[in-house]
Amino acid sequence: MKALTVVIGNYNYARFLPEAIESALAQTQADLLVIDDGSVDESREIIERYHDRFGERVRPVYKANGGQCSVYNLGLALVQTEFVLFLDSDDVLYPGAIDEVLRAFASGDFVKVQFKLRVIDEDGTDTGALVPGATPPSDCATILRRGWLYPSPPASGNAYRVSALRSVFPIPLSAEQRKAADFFAIYGVALTGRICALDQPLGGYRVHRSVERKTAAGAVSLGIGNCENVRDVEQSFPWRWETLRHMTSTRLGEELPARFIDYSYEKNRLCAHLYEASTAKRWHWLLFRSRDYFRSLLGNPFWDARKKIGVMGLTLMCLVPSVRLNRFALRYIANPLFRRPTVAR
């Protein structure tokens, strides 16, 4: 048995799943568990082909659809290794990634090792962007207790000590809120010990939703990362924080503040409310509804002055009565696909 298990959670991502499985199989020090969450595309057939070819190296689990939170709960219950990494089925690990992660775990008493991810597009082309854009300290608990969500990559860029994650999990399941399981793992585990943040990119984070698209009603909406519905994310984030507070209070005896501070969340709100809005509405929102946004920007403990000034400049472009400038600024803030050099302005 290896020291780490890569758990691939999949739901209807047959077009990306083979690349994710291949990238996990290329890791010499990792077991592989593939959990299919009730897919209705060709995912199961793909998993079976890999299982037939590689035998126990590809351990398949099939379940009824229950959402990402149920996949994390089940995966954590099934792993028998000391460490675990949850790889999204549309992402990839680079060769040697798990070797680097295990070396980092061996270098100190860490509960999580995170690493940067290269942002890739639907075809796997490197966009030039990296996530996260800042490096957190090893003691993220102190910052979290003040309500700040520390910089972390999405799910695929985090490996956990299983015992630490089990002290926080399982995630309470909800029929309404079934996504963003990595939120509870990333921030919950930070209260159990130190975190090691590697600066080198060891995987690819695939952003495959367009920068801009039209709704069924014909209105233009802005694509923010892989979000299907930006307003749903805005509404669900407070629920996530309240759920995390409940988990850490009942299982760790940690009392987190009632409110959280996170630039990523606030920028999503900014972009959702200002994109394609009239100049008057943009002015009104920035003058009267942007307090939390500017607090998360100017008070950000993870950014230097240069980055804050740059983002402030982009934000203030929204005050200019120019549709073109407004679109440019919000596309740049919202979606890393827009930042690649080949995108026409």
Rank of each mutant, 00 (worst) to 15 (best):
P136I: 15
L144W: 13
V168D: 02
D139Q: 05
A155Y: 04
R161P: 00
R166A: 02
P137A: 14
L173N: 11
E176I: 13
P151T: 13
P136M: 13
Y160C: 08
S156V: 04
R145S: 08
L144P: 00
L165M: 12
F169G: 08
Q177S: 06
P172Q: 04
A164F: 04
A141M: 05
R166V: 12
Y150N: 02
I171E: 00
T142S: 13
F169M: 12
P137N: 11
A175C: 04
P153W: 06
A175R: 14
V168A: 02
S174L: 05
T142P: 00
S156R: 11
V168M: 03
G147S: 01
Y160S: 09
Q177E: 11
V162E: 11
V168G: 02
R166Q: 07
S163H: 04
R145V: 01
Q177P: 02
L149E: 15
L165C: 07
G157F: 01
R146V: 03
C140P: 02
T135C: 05
R161D: 03
A155C: 14
A175V: 14
T142K: 10
L149D: 13
V168K: 02
I171R: 00
N158S: 09
I171A: 02
R145G: 05
E176F: 15
T135D: 02
I171Q: 00
A164C: 07
R166W: 04
R166K: 09
R166E: 08
R145F: 13
Q177L: 13
S152C: 07
I143Y: 07
P136S: 14
S167Q: 04
P153G: 07
S163G: 03
P137T: 14
D139V: 09
L173P: 12
N158V: 00
R145E: 12
P170D: 04
L173F: 12
L149P: 08
D139L: 08
P151Y: 14
S167N: 01
P170A: 02
T135G: 03
N158K: 13
A164T: 13
R146M: 12
S152I: 09
A175S: 09
P151W: 14
I143F: 05
P136L: 15
F169Y: 06
P154E: 08
S156A: 14
T135A: 05
W148S: 00
L144M: 07
R146E: 10
S156L: 13
E176H: 12
R161N: 13
P136D: 11
I171T: 08
P170V: 12
E176T: 10
C140V: 11
F169E: 02
C140F: 05
Y150D: 05
S174F: 12
L149H: 15
E176D: 11
S138E: 10
T142I: 09
W148K: 00
S167M: 05
L144G: 04
R145P: 00
R166D: 05
R146N: 06
P153F: 04
A175L: 11
L144Y: 09
I143A: 09
T135W: 01
Y150R: 05
P154H: 12
Q177K: 09
R146D: 10
D139M: 05
A141S: 15
G157N: 01
A175G: 10
